[in-house]
């Protein structure tokens, strides 16, 4: 048995070697396996995306060296970011980020900043949707807002992932819009949050589309609105009657809250432009695959691609925005 397995590996190795014998265009290429750091636990949104990219790269032979996904979730992702920060000039390390790139240093005081890293590319933006249980009486955000406003502070419960991170930031923004306080209950992962809502242990959630889609299709959850400036671009029917694009924006429904989460790639500082270009090119290829197209459609990701200065400017603006949001919410570590 072992020999047949070894053969598989040898075969895989050969294919890579053949692919590699063609002249490479980029001036620089990784010389050893590339560590793909995920500053979050296994099974979460960032982890799923990283492992998906690992699969796509391997399947389409996009890189000579393998991509290895390593989870460093300690301290709300600080562990992973510190690792990259300390790996100055190492071109064989990349990290996929989520909003904790901005929120973790603010909330915990752990010393790192996105400027300690080299921005490579923004892959997509992740949407947030306001969900309620399908058996609840709320059909529109206005219904739910009215119920919150009519009740005492803290009567309605919002479940979310982690503490002082994106989900809680949105919750605080909703508090502000309604003038009443929601009870925020933090859970470890987005999947848990969706199930808690299905089980009616909480009243609402702001799950990413991919975390809740299965329950939506099964008729257990109901989306009320999306926290974006315009409806999502996907018009294929997800349930019998609705597509992602049919969910109205929260703003149009009288709940003026917007939030999008970065799914981007960063490298350590001190790397050369050649090295950055290699990865930019790699992710362009990844995004051109049909698998990526299906993945983003299933997860209703917002397909925005940015690199270079444009991306750095975006990150600077996002950092400022988060600082302001966290300050208002009182989440900044003293």
């Amino acid at each position: 048995m072992k020999s047949s397995l070894r053969r598989t590996f040898v075969a895989a190795g050969l294919t890579v070697a053949v692919a590699a014998s063609f002249p490479a265009l980029a001036a620089w290429e990784p010389t050893k396996p590339v560590e793909f750091i995920v500053p979050a636990g296994t099974g979460g949104g960032a982890d799923q995306m990283a492992r998906f990219i690992q699969g796509v790269v391997a399947k389409n032979n996009l890189m000579k060296q393998p991509l290895i996904v390593v989870n460093k979730s300690g301290g709300a992702g600080a562990e992973g970011f510190l690792e990259v920060k300390n790996a100055k000039g190492d071109p064989n390390k990349i990290i996929i980020t989520l909003s904790n790139l901005f929120t973790t240093p603010l909330a915990t005081g752990v010393p790192f900043n996105w400027k300690d890293l080299t921005p490579v590319a923004m892959l997509a933006l992740d949407e947030f949707v306001l969900w309620v249980n399908a058996e609840s009486p709320y059909k529109t955000p206005a219904d739910y807002m009215a119920a919150i406003k009519a009740a005492d502070n803290g009567k309605y419960k919002m479940a979310g992932t982690g503490s002082k991170q994106e989900d809680q930031i949105i919750t605080v923004a909703i508090d502000k819009a309604t003038g009443k306080k929601l009870t925020y209950v933090p859970f470890k992962g987005g999947g848990d949050v969706a199930v808690q809502l299905v089980g009616k242990h909480v009243d609402s959630s702001v799950n990413n589309p991919i975390e809740a889609v299965a329950h939506w299709r099964a008729g257990a959850l109901r989306p009320l609105c999306v926290f974006d400036t315009q409806p999502m671009a996907y018009t294929a029917k997800v349930t019998a009657t609705q597509a992602w694009g049919d969910i109205p924006t929260c703003k149009s429904q009288g709940l003026d809250v917007e939030y999008l989460m970065l799914r981007g790639i960063f490298m350590p500082s001190g790397v050369t432009q050649d090295q950055v270009d290699f990865y930019v090119d790699l992710f362009k290829k990844v995004r051109a695959t049909p698998e990526w197209k299906k993945f983003t459609e299933d997860g209703a990701f917002k397909n925005t691609f940015m690199t270079g200065k444009e991306f750095a400017d975006w990150a600077a603006a996002a950092e400022k925005h988060h600082k302001q949001l966290m300050q208002e919410a009182g989440f900044i570590a003293k």
Partner: peptide, 22 residues
């Protein structure tokens, strides 16, 4: 339900998603 009971199950879950199984 889509909630993995262990890290291993979580990675299996990722696999399902990649194959287009929800």
């Amino acid at each position: 339900l889509g909630i993995p009971g262990s890290p291993t199950a979580a990675v299996l879950l990722g696999g399902l998603l990649i194959w287009g199984l929800q």
